[in-house]
Design a binder for these strands. Structure first.
Lengths: 151, 151
DNA sequence: TATTGTTATACTCTATAACTATA
DNA sequence: TATAGTTATAGAGTATAACAATA
């Protein structure tokens, strides 16, 4: 037996079930995160882009759309929301005038830092209640799944 | 002025990082799943509701909205999509005529079974490439995170 | 009055198609 | 022609507010 069954999801962990388990858990967590989101705040998509710009530095629209695996037109609109809100700005690329470099504003950088801890308060509390071993398990799974998401 | 930040935050178990790591990994996986979705197919939300009805049996709108942690009005619209597509039907509750019991149709049950394996083909392939130990780690993390999502 | 469910409306996020500007 | 980016429009999924029907 590879894994013990989760009592309530009864038939779920069968031979082919791991993908379904991951997908279900991810979907439920994602929706849970979204349900905690106060109205008027940046959505997770926009915040993820802002955080990416903050951590990696200026990027073009094409780079951002490829990193986020969305169509360029989709990323353009997400960036419209960020720039309209004053969290990012467009700057011309001096070497290629077709390109636009997006970068965070001071407000955007502040928000990226602040929101990172604030928005995760609930989740951090839940995770803190796990045993150290379980925390390591979750951390390791995040590495593995993050790599899969980017593969 | 470059990112004084961790270029690759996979050290993970720092003082505040686990919640952020989980959130980031979940968000990137969720968006990756969504990007794999062929046009014209049921979205993950609708499919999750359909699967829930298929596994648990008939449920009222209130029960479904609480299970999915969405507003009743939101669930009503998701159910409108499922019923319009012929995958679920409304049936009156004989004991309380305010209530509506939603149940899968034959087509809905078939779809719930078929899509489950088909849609996870890509993810299953990625997971199959992991070592057995890593697979157990992911499975265990899904249990832990699933419980948090439902807490 | 309280509960159950619905419709109306708006916002985020996504897509495709059609467009402009630059290389 | 090819590439980078934008706008127009549509659909899924979410929310709140206002409503009807039943308890």
């Amino acid at each position: 037996m590879e894994t013990e069954a989760t009592a309530e999801n009864s038939g779920v962990l069968d031979e082919t079930g791991l993908g379904a388990e991951v997908r279900s858990a991810v979907g439920r967590l994602y929706r849970r995160f979204r349900s905690e989101l106060p109205a008027g705040e940046l959505g997770d998509t926009a915040l993820e882009v802002l955080t990416y710009l903050h951590k990696r530095g200026p990027r073009t629209l094409t780079e951002l759309s490829e990193a986020g695996r969305v169509a360029p037109a989709s990323m353009s609109q997400t960036l419209n929301r960020l720039t309209s809100a004053g969290y990012a700005i467009r700057t011309p690329d001096p070497n290629d005038r077709r390109k636009v470099l997006f970068r965070t504003t001071t407000e955007g950088a502040t928000l990226a830092r602040a929101t990172r801890s604030q928005r995760n308060a609930w989740l951090d509390a839940q995770l803190a209640a796990l045993s150290p071993e379980d925390q390591r398990t979750v951390a390791r799974a995040c590495e593995l799944l993050g790599a899969i998401a980017d593969s």
